[in-house]
Amino acid sequence: MSIVASLRTPRGLAVALLLLALAVLPLLTQAFDQRYLLSIGTRIVIWAIAAISLNMILGYGGLVSFGHAVFFGIGGYAVGILGAHGVVTGWIQWPVGILAAAAWAALVGALSLRTRGVYFIMITLAFAQLVYYVGVGLEAYGADDGLNISRSRFPGLVDLRDKTSFYWLCFALLLGTLWFCSRFANSRFGFVIRGAKSNDLRMTALGFPVFRYRLAAFTLSGAFGGLAGILLANEGAYISPAMMSWVKSGDLIVIVVLGGMGTLFGPLFGTIAFFVLEESLPPLLDLVRKGWGEYWQIAFGPLLVLIALYARGGIDSLFGRRHG
């Protein structure tokens, strides 16, 4: 479907407007002197990349990985550890971070993709906890105190300390990730992954090596997760094991489900909704009655229950049925 034609559907229009808004966000925040909004925007874009990468296996593949935040950590620690040893150029830091995340994903995938259902949820969690506690034990890199790092350098290209350029870099990478994901979903490879979600016996019977396809998807997903970790470390100029706590993995799952599993733009919708809820629930409750804002989770919890019960398709399904 052509871009012009897709603009006529509600979903296409919403996505176009959303991307347009994200593209001009730095101009708006500058005009209205709202630098903090740009920080939130940057985090949304980075988390969206991570959510899209999780969606590759969770949404398309139906594999509930409960340890995706570990890739935040691997990407982030690659930047931090190399930086601490004087390797400050992003041209080395970034590929190393992405490759390390992919390698770890390949290893974990090879061991855990033999299990199913809840066993898979738990084994991915176990491996994530393993890396988390390794981070807690890394005394040379701050252990659980974390480490203040200096941002990756791309001399002559972009200065990551400049918030606006950093935002645009993240946004460009988000577009790249979306593009890759759409190619992935519509390829033969993506077809097998999605087919195996509903019936992996049939896929195997058709002669597809489902395990190897899934392993490849898991590895790719880890690589993009690592990229998000690299960006996150550069955003805060700080790394810590808390980046990869299991709660963060849980948040990522919530985001993907909230936005709409197995849809191209669902993770992006989900991330925006999640951040908007988190930022706006406390002040909203404070408006109802002063002091209630602190108890915002008492409203957020049941909201999650309602989403799980009644909003199965996520936000994406609000725009009608998906095609293709």
Partner: peptide, 16 residues
């Protein structure tokens, strides 16, 4: 299982 994880995660927040 995913819906269950999500809903019961919400319950944890609520009860805390």
């Amino acid at each position: 299982h995913l819906d269950q994880v999500l809903a019961t995660f919400g319950l944890i927040l609520f009860f805390n």
